[in-house]
Design a protein around this nucleic acid. Structure first.
Lengths: 318, 318
DNA sequence: AATTTTTGAGAAAAGCTTTTCTCATATTGA
DNA sequence: TCAATATGAGAAAAGCTTTTCTCAAAAATT
């Protein structure tokens, strides 16, 4: 039995008798033959390997993205190198070089905010690069969540529950995500209340509630928060003041960070950015690029969805 | 110029004139030559690639471990495949097979608790396997944190601050980690107070405080918590009751989960399991195994350390 | 029955390095 | 000056697949 015959039998290629083909396959299965992906890659220029590059140390955003990528690609036999580069360009270069040496089929760049570049140069690489939840190079394909739409979802939900004095407590104005969300808030909730920019911390949530409740005049009946950590703090601060959530005030978060949203009392209704779906799309897209299919460049925006828990009233609570 | 001469020049091997060697190196640098790791691996049976397998979806434990592995191995040119298998054996097999096909030099199995196996068979693999923060197969090398020592650190710290009625609010007794920590607590703090087993949730932290403060008799002057989430809830619950932390009661957590420990008011003094160091050791160990060096099997326990913030009093607070 | 077509299987090359061996030239010593 | 040694460089094989080409035997056609 020649090597080439065996190869053709196993790959269902070439011409040969059905009986021979079967016999080869059986023998291969018997001895547990697994073709060497390296030799294969050497020939085909495909390694069924991609790299995921991120500066998101805690994995808050990158892990869901990664889960989506893996889910989409594992069926295609693709494995993923995860490289967490803090904000160190030298380290970034080392990792990228390592990936290139290993001939990854493509690279997905990700991060912790959509308006910052990774501290590493990904232009003119010999492999396709696509961006997911981080700022992409011009002319590249970039995936990100639709902050405006997500925020609109939140505000409309509050309005649908009859809330009319909705406050918006959010992160630093320097984030585009923050500005997008604030824009949706202003467009929909009017501008009776100013947007409260601050920090991504619980401390700011407490502080914001203190400001709102110490101001003169009518208090808000709903607070739309820029992320779940702020929302959690807001809920805690309200409880400490004896304000009931959701009876007196509805609170919506952003991110659907399980670990925060589900542990808050009451659990947070919050906007989910569908990062897993984003990862899935990104994965499928590098794969397409790697296979030589062409893909329209540009920014692809994926819709968010609202996860309803109990911090607003509405359906899943009493 | 022959290919073999070039190879020898670049690898500083073989005999040749210094001038030739230099010339080759310069030329290689000029054209940006990078040796193909696949061809290299085909020959040397080393791919400078390892797999990290985990069922820890949120990356709470695995990400620090991964950071350690990467940190230790990136200098050796090793890249890491991250495979998150929920608790799905089929998915696990797919991922392991994919890694084997790609001829990883070794596999590190990790997880979210040290007394559960990953739902996948890693015995009789053609590559070395080591375990980090998950239960290993008999005869394997396993790394884990020293729960007893970590807990002792916490209790002794409280005692050093003059606390005498120390309570222990922790997770489910089914976890060995919980039992180990409880053992240290009992050995050191005596058994005036029963260990309070419960769940890994904030709800349990609140509940436990309610139980402690509704019981008759003297109240605790310190609470050693089984993890940071419980600790956080305990701190919140105490504050709600008007009990001052750390003036009236000191609280220690476990895990040093930044995102919880640092956001708690006051920030938590807590035990850090040094997962990054654990990852580093694990990485270096697979590498050793991959290079054919022999390694003593068994369970290696790495010491925890106490991270002092403000929830106990003591140094970094007023 | 002789020739053409079809069919099945093997040989060889390619993909990129590294390593071992061989060989020609330069150098040293007698 | 001639033989023996040292030195530098190239040829070839190996590592594992896949693909293209070649070729012999079987089948079909005239």
């Amino acid at each position: 039995m020649s090597i080439s015959t065996a190869s053709k039998a196993l790959n269902n290629t070439g011409r040969m008798g059905d009986e021979t083909r079967e016999r080869v396959k059986r023998a291969a299965a018997d001895i547990g033959f697994r073709p060497n992906a390296l030799a294969r890659g050497l020939l085909s220029n495909r390694t069924f390997t991609i790299g995921l590059l991120t500066n998101d140390t805690y994995g808050r955003f990158t892990l869901p993205v990664m889960a989506g990528i893996t889910e989409a690609l594992v069926d295609h036999g693709v494995s993923v190198f995860l490289c967490t580069i803090e904000d160190d360009p030298a380290l970034g270069k080392v990792h990228v070089d390592a990936m290139l040496d290993k001939h990854v089929d493509g690279i997905i760049a990700s991060g912790k905010r959509i308006d910052r570049r990774l501290p590493v140069d990904l232009s003119n690489l010999p492999v396709p690069v696509i961006y997911a939840f981080t700022e992409g190079a011009p002319g590249s394909v970039t995936f990100c969540a639709d902050d405006y739409q997500g925020a609109a979802l939140a505000v409309e939900w509050l309005q649908g529950l009859g809330r009319r004095r909705i406050a918006h407590v959010t992160g630093p104005e320097s984030f585009v995500s923050v500005r997008e969300r604030a824009k949706a808030y202003r467009d929909l909730a009017g501008d009776r209340l100013p947007v409260m920019y601050g920090m991504w911390s619980e401390a700011w949530g407490h502080e914001a509630v203190a400001q709102l409740w110490s101001a003169a005049g009518a208090k808000p009946d709903a607070i739309f928060c820029g992320n779940d950590q702020i929302a959690r703090a807001v809920v805690d601060a309200l409880r400490e003041r004896g304000v009931r959530v959701p009876e007196d005030v509805s609170v919506v978060g952003f991110d659907n960070w399980e670990i925060v949203a589900a542990q808050t009392r009451p659990p947070l209704t919050t906007v989910d950015m569908n990062l897993k779906a984003l990862g899935r799309e990104a994965g499928l897209t590098v794969l397409a690029l790697a296979e030589g299919r062409s893909v329209e460049p540009g920014i692809r925006t994926l819709p968010c969805e609202l996860v309803v828990r109990q911090s607003c009233g509405g359906s899943p609570d009493r």
